[in-house]
Design a protein around this nucleic acid. Structure first.
Lengths: 204, 204
DNA sequence: TCCAGAATTTGCGTGTCACGCACATAGTGC
DNA sequence: GCACTATGTGCGTGACACGCAAATTCTGGA
């Protein structure tokens, strides 16, 4: 079992996963935020070209399938921040990383509206956004040299960033085309991320 | 239908609601984070002294019932902040309000651990904490004189505060008795709430 | 080239759940 | 005391998540 094999396996699996979650989101959008109940598991599975049992091998609820894309994107937040130049100030690095992650490509309005404005998806949507927190906290700790275990700053800031992204998304849905998502995102993030961690924190 | 009648009605309803959610949380704790599947709806209803159908009139999922107490507490966050002296700086007001809200009484470790460390409850737990955001944003907007609709600061800060409370709770569960929850909470909140909103924001 | 072992897909059966509906009960105001 | 409305309850239904085992596909080595 060499790497190619693993990678091929993983790639096929990933393809199936995306087919299912894409089908789930598409069908949900078609029915609108109110008719979510009408999107049957069987419909999603059929649209994705798999059996309903296989659908359940990948996702344990419809909400999870529908929000999977958002969740996957959030998981990349840590890497996005880590790939910023190490000499960049914290606030700038976070802002540029998040703008790059969440505006390439420009988010799909219908999809975002679906997961953010459908009450039945609220919990899963929050989960999806909050998945950025862990990796983000690690990246912030690494960048600032603060120990994740001893100081709350990295974890709290990560949560604040994830929250700011979520609020920015909501605002973008309401604001229409008057503002670009990137601009809203910058504005939101600048409210909560300091250029440098307050006080001397490395020593604690 | 006078106020007394309404209030009496509402009070009875509230009592039933609390009986159900209390029973749900208690039974969940008894089974531990792993055996959540074993807590049947019927058990919760019986323990609360109502029919299982009535249970469903109050809550639409077990997770919702179990997390109801946390959700109710979060809903009071706006009021807690509003009741702080108007001349208090924003950061201090937020910190004192949250400390008062979340440490009176000292949270139940078992209950908090249950809702924060059980994967099946994660979405509902996030929902419960995020319920503080709306009222908090309104209170922050009122206190700072910033228009909620035009400036993201209130909403973003509210999300950051809710996130900080959540992170503080997680840390408190891990830290054992070495630190009081109030101290952790203060430390977490001081990472994200500025003493005064950055730049002149009232004019935008 | 072929084969033994694995990962994955699928069908079936099961236990639970959420909820619509209709009826019973209780407390509410006139 | 009487209509009225809110709430509680029993029953029935459709869907869902998942355990299990057989079938199928994929993988790497002889």
């Amino acid at each position: 079992m060499n790497d190619d094999a693993m990678d091929l396996r993983a790639r096929i699996r990933q393809t199936t996963r995306e087919a299912i979650s894409h089908a789930a989101l598409r069908l949900a959008i078609e029915q609108g935020p109110n008719g979510l109940v009408l999107v049957r598991v069987q419909d999603i599975a059929t649209a994705a070209g798999v059996s309903s049992r296989t659908y359940n091998n990948y996702f344990s609820s419809r909400a999870e399938a529908i929000c999977a894309f958002q969740a996957d994107q959030s998981k990349r937040a840590g890497d996005a921040l880590s790939s910023r130049p190490v000499d960049e100030p914290l606030d700038q690095a976070v802002i540029e990383a998040m703008v790059e992650l969440y505006t390439d490509p420009e988010p799909d309005r219908a999809g975002l509206r679906m997961i953010m404005e459908t009450p039945e998806l609220e919990g899963e949507a929050l989960k999806a956004f909050s998945m950025a927190e862990g990796p983000l906290a690690v990246a912030i700790a690494a960048r600032t040299g603060i120990d994740l275990g001893r100081d709350l700053f990295p974890a709290v800031t990560a949560a604040a960033v994830a929250g700011a992204v979520r609020v920015a998304g909501r605002h973008w849905l309401e604001a229409g085309d008057s503002e670009s998502f990137a601009a809203i995102l910058r504005s939101a993030l600048s409210c909560v991320v300091p250029a440098v961690p307050p006080q001397g924190r490395k020593d604690r």
